[in-house]
Design a protein around this nucleic acid. Structure first.
Lengths: 226, 226
DNA sequence: TCAAAAGTGTTTATATTACACCCATGG
DNA sequence: CCATGGGTGTAATATAAACACTTTTGA
């Protein structure tokens, strides 16, 4: 590459994350409200520019921490968005990430230098007009999440440490927008040998308490679930 | 992004393609032999820098044309390689593409300004020491190809217009490194309704001639094959 | 006429779907 | 004691896997 060729100048690299969690048996995505130009007061996905001494995953986790205070979420790149006009300021290529985190003990920073607020949104309540091309990125991420949740066991990072089978089923139903038969779902999931019954039960529910399960320690993510 | 922050300076964006085809019932990948520094005389994947006025897919197709003379191949991004040290010259992020082309009527340029040769390599004969991190990219692309060939119908771009069922089966066997039962393979593939018998047959084979099939006109790539 | 690879159907095993009743809890 | 949602098993159907013989051609 001829570094002086103007065709190569003024290009930047962003990382952008669609971070999902489950709160109150609902799947939610994290958005930040911008303070500055461009797109002042618009909601956006947590994002930022990559330093020249870090790889993209490191950059994504750093940006996530700086913009939201969130640490230790699972992130995985899913697509590069490279329309030359996607930012009105300068040519920025965005490496899109899917992030997954469980909502236990989760504190998020509400305000940073560049954002005035950070909130979890139900998927059905994500604003239409996100900043930049973030709506497109959100929709692509959601599509990817639907594939990932049936082809891998990322769901383990979405749930709290202990969860009930009905909660697990609800996650699949919300993300895939589809109902499952309770008996078949349990049978299927249990025979995957990914989770184990802790013997503990939920309490104060006004009905028969469900058993609490947890994921077994397994590092691999390549598991066909449906 | 503060454009004057030195942390953001001197970063470039590459596209890199692992282009696969089938020739003589073997899956092959296209490599180019470098002329210049760095890595003189090493083989590499077709690649090049993205202009600031084009998206990555456009850049990939342009580079493929410039470096190899190949036009109209199917390309699809699969992973971003962003180790800050992946190039000894400067920080370059690479958007990795899988390319698929059928080898009919295919002319490749043997020599360009920066390459002294371009050749198709059997997967088992790809040199160990490719330039840059291209061996890592090749292996990741191959892993992705194995998934794509069972989850999508990209195989249609890998084969010539007319092909026999045994040829099709061989492609799956070579890529997945696995034998299939002939009867079950035919039954399975035919019921997917992706291909149709042309009524024509191959000739001069010294054995019973196989029927020639072709893919039906379908644009979608989301088809579970195995 | 022989070698080589193509074509073909049935049986068995496995996986998926459909479906209804009893149970434990909190209010 | 009742409303709520949790837990369980079996039969029917669909899909996948195992398996061997006949056919056509070119040499």
């Amino acid at each position: 590459m001829d570094i002086n060729n103007p065709l190569y100048r003024n290009q930047g690299i962003h990382v952008v994350c669609a971070l999902f969690t489950v709160k109150d048996s609902e799947v939610k995505i994290l958005l930040a409200k911008r303070s500055n130009n461009p797109y002042p007061d618009k909601w956006m996905l947590p994002s930022g520019a990559v330093y020249n001494n870090e790889d993209c995953e490191t950059a994504m986790k750093r940006e996530m921490l700086e913009k939201t205070g969130i640490t230790n979420c699972y992130v995985e790149q899913f697509h590069v968005f490279s329309n030359p006009k996607r930012s009105p300021v300068m040519r920025m290529i965005a490496v899109g990430y899917i992030g997954i985190i469980n909502s236990e003990n989760l504190r998020i920073k509400k305000k940073t230098e560049k954002t005035q607020d950070v909130e979890w949104f139900k998927l059905s309540e994500v604003p239409e007009d996100l900043a930049y091309d973030h709506r497109e990125i959100f929709l692509y991420a959601l599509k990817t999440l639907k594939v990932k949740i049936i082809r891998t066991n990322i769901v383990k990072d979405l749930l709290p440490q202990y969860f009930t089978l009905p909660e697990l089923q609800k996650v699949y139903e919300v993300i895939l927008n589809k109902k499952f038969d309770r008996r078949n779902f349990r049978k299927k999931f249990l025979q995957l040998d990914l989770i184990e019954n802790t013997g503990m039960q939920e309490e104060n529910k006004g009905h028969k308490p469900a058993n609490l399960y947890k994921f077994k320690q397994r590092e691999d993510y390549d598991v066909d679930i449906f």
